[in-house]
């Protein structure tokens, strides 16, 4: 089944100059491999096309079920130069909550705040 990321993981973004880091944290250890396999750096960059102009690097912290995406050129030239209303990119992480992942049915009970249609 196709499930938006918000049911598998929570997110937070932080700023440094013109670079944003968006941390994606699995709610459950068994959901982490799905994120790791499907939310690649390329998939992330494609999803944020139009907002992220530079390189996307993905760092993995397997022990904590965390993917940390470092997106260069994500903040309109940098916090102080940016013409964006959200110049720190504090709300930037929220977009990826809509990224859809293929999740096996057997893991449905691990999804957060998710009621399947069949249930």
């Amino acid at each position: 089944m196709r499930i938006p990321l918000q049911h598998l993981a929570h997110v937070r973004s932080g700023d440094k100059g013109n670079t944003s880091n968006i941390t994606v944290i699995a709610y459950e250890p068994d959901l982490y491999p799905i994120l790791k396999e499907q939310l690649t750096a390329d998939a992330f960059k494609a999803f944020y096309a139009g907002m992220v102009t530079g390189t996307v690097t993905r760092y993995e912290v397997d022990k904590l079920g965390v993917l940390n995406f470092v997106a260069e050129g994500a903040l309109g030239g940098g916090v102080s130069r940016s013409l964006s209303l959200d110049n720190y990119g504090k709300a930037l992480s929220a977009a990826v909550l809509a990224f859809e992942l293929e999740v096996p049915d057997r893991l449905a009970n691990l999804l957060r705040n998710w009621r399947s249609e069949a249930a």
Binding site: H10, R12, G14, D15, K16, T19, N21, T23, I25, Y27, T57, Y59, V61, L64, V66, N68, V70
Partner: peptide, 16 residues
Amino acid sequence: LRTVKEQLFYEVHDPA
């Protein structure tokens, strides 16, 4: 666990 994990990686690039 969730609040701590979010803050642990806030404004961190390479976690190592």
